[in-house]
Design a protein around this nucleic acid. Structure first.
Lengths: 207, 207, 207, 207
DNA sequence: CATGAATGAGTCTTCATTCAT
DNA sequence: GATGAATGAAGACTCATTCAT
């Protein structure tokens, strides 16, 4: 039996689509305003301008709601990464580093509020699986890209992927929560590119 | 006004110390077994072998309990980092990288269960302050160390500190949760050292 | 003030008849599958292949739906009993016993599923009135029959009626829920006839 | 895994015993005042003079509460029947009939309110098992008794047991709900004895 | 007439916290 | 100091019913 986490019904009608969208937004709002701990389905429904009943028409339980929101966000991020990786194939390691870091930052900062809000959700037990999937896809994309590098070869490719994915997330998150994010953004981006590039060079084997 | 988060009384007697210790352990146990979401003070007390009443004798509320546990853990980690940074002062950037990475890994893997269990707590709203403090101290220690490097100078030292601290945490966490952590540990450690070292070199200015 | 329990409109058209019929069937289905406790109007509508809205077109509320279903069933049973009693008038007490028991069993086993399903509904508060009416009619019919017995007279006729009606229902219900109802049916029927006949003889006064 | 229907903790202390007793009484009260359909755990707690929390300390859920109350009642009834059957062993069939009917009536009318209130609970799905057990025990006791009859032997003993048990319950229930129960009691008792006795005689084989 | 999305009052149940013993 | 029974506010979730399309 599948875990009770899949959305309850697909929004086929326009009204439904709008409703679900409003619920998603409401979730983010409440997450930012109250935090995950104090997030209640009633609050979310209120913010979304619908009744609790309606919320439950689309999501069988609170968990599935949070999962859906997180899923939508993370999927967008991974897709951005996959795209960037695809486009950087065959290029030099330096260019790959730039592509990867920029893609991640852009994806995260396109919806900075959602990004920040969803961090807490990420830590929740039921997100494990989702996170695993997303991490998996990211590593796959990065691995596929790296193996086409024009100037380096990588042994321990899987470890390299792991390190790359996990090491970039922390700084990005810190940036999202920083008050002077705007000022820092460019410098940090530069540093992350330097770090990634330097790491890949030091770990790669010259061709 | 201070938040009601400080422990209620100091355990001066041996029995008290043992009780608090048991409660701390119980908390970790429950965290691992049930997750933060399903952690209840009653469960913790049970695991600790005391009554709820006793638990509340030492901690005014659930939050303060979790804060205390998290605080103890993080403090140990920072202290380890501070120590390592202190000892690596005046050395080369490469040695500093090694010292830093090793200190972090050792500190985290000394109590791997606690490290893993407390990750979720970290994401909770009330931990913000604690995390901030700890991050602050770490960056301070690292900054102090870096500025004594025998072979590099750093501009944007604060950014470098930020990047270092935040980028290492992700991989370590991933490692803690990996099933084959044992096999990966050494390789990942090596990669993290490479990354850190390469990053510092690339960002530093030769003396 | 009358309770809002009467059907909302009479199905004059064929389509309407079919719809109501489908809703009745759906109700029985859900009753059997989920039990009264978990019976919801939505489920019933689904099973019936109509929308909830349509269901409410024919029944003003859940109660009236259940009442209607129960009513239809019980009415059929009483009618069968009334008929049998009518036909046995003037016969001996023994023949009356046979007629009564057989009529009841036949009526109940003509729609065994419905009979079984509706037992729970019977116990619900709102059925009180309906049950009373039905019981009343049965007792009336039985009383009318008994008083024409060719070989006995009855004092305490009302008590006799009460006992007869209420004592036969239990065994029939047990039979309906038995797994080996088929095997038992004939024997139990025989026993019930014996019991009824013997009871009437022992309580009746020889003419 | 056992069904979540067993009481949560045993009342060892006096206070606990009193609490549970109050909850039982409260349940009966609410059942009589509002009916099963409108019975809520909050209402029960209020009537019992405790908080909902306390109620849930002793019963994991509403169902288990109702089961416990029903169980207590039915157990008392069966015990009474078992006792009566035991004492009537070796006697004539007529005496057995008297013993059985009187035992049942006395047991039911010792707590007439509870008897009446619990009828609805009886019909609920989750009571199936309990009812089955109780019926089983009753039939066993009756069977054991009948087989020692001094003046009759019974073939189809199991059918006879079934018929006896199920046929007596209906009249008793009707009596409990009758407004003039007091007036009827004696006559009905007499009729039930007649019926039972006559049935057993007609179905038994003279020795 | 039929549909089914939306509503929200009403339930069950949990759990942090207190306090009499 | 320790205990654990009692509390009750709060939150997740359901479902009878309505009404715009």
């Amino acid at each position: 039996m599948k875990s009770q986490t899949a959305p309850r019904k697909k929004p086929v009608q326009d009204r439904s689509v709008a409703t679900v969208e409003a619920i998603f937004d409401g979730t983010i709002q409440v997450l930012l305003a109250s935090g995950l701990e104090k997030l209640t389905t009633t609050k979310v429904a209120e913010r979304a301008g619908v009744s609790v009943g309606t919320l439950y028409q689309y999501f069988p339980n609170k968990e599935s709601l949070l999962s859906a929101v997180l899923n939508r966000h993370l999927t967008r991020v991974v897709v951005a990464i996959e795209l960037a990786c695809e486009q950087a194939k065959g290029k030099t390691t330096e260019i790959m580093a730039i592509a990867l870091v920029q893609a991640l930052l852009q994806a995260k900062f396109r919806e900075p509020l959602a990004s920040r809000a969803l961090y807490a959700v990420t830590a929740d037990a039921f997100s494990k699986e989702l996170i695993a999937t997303v991490t998996q896809r990211s590593q796959q994309a990065i691995g596929d890209m790296l193996s086409t590098s024009s100037n380096h070869k990588f042994r321990d490719l899987s470890v390299t992927n792991l390190v790359l994915v996990t090491s970039l997330v922390g700084p990005v998150q810190a940036l999202l929560e920083a008050e002077d994010a705007g000022d820092l953004l460019l410098v940090v981006e530069q540093h992350l590119i330097s770090m990634t590039s330097a790491y890949l060079t030091s770990v790669g084997i010259g061709k």
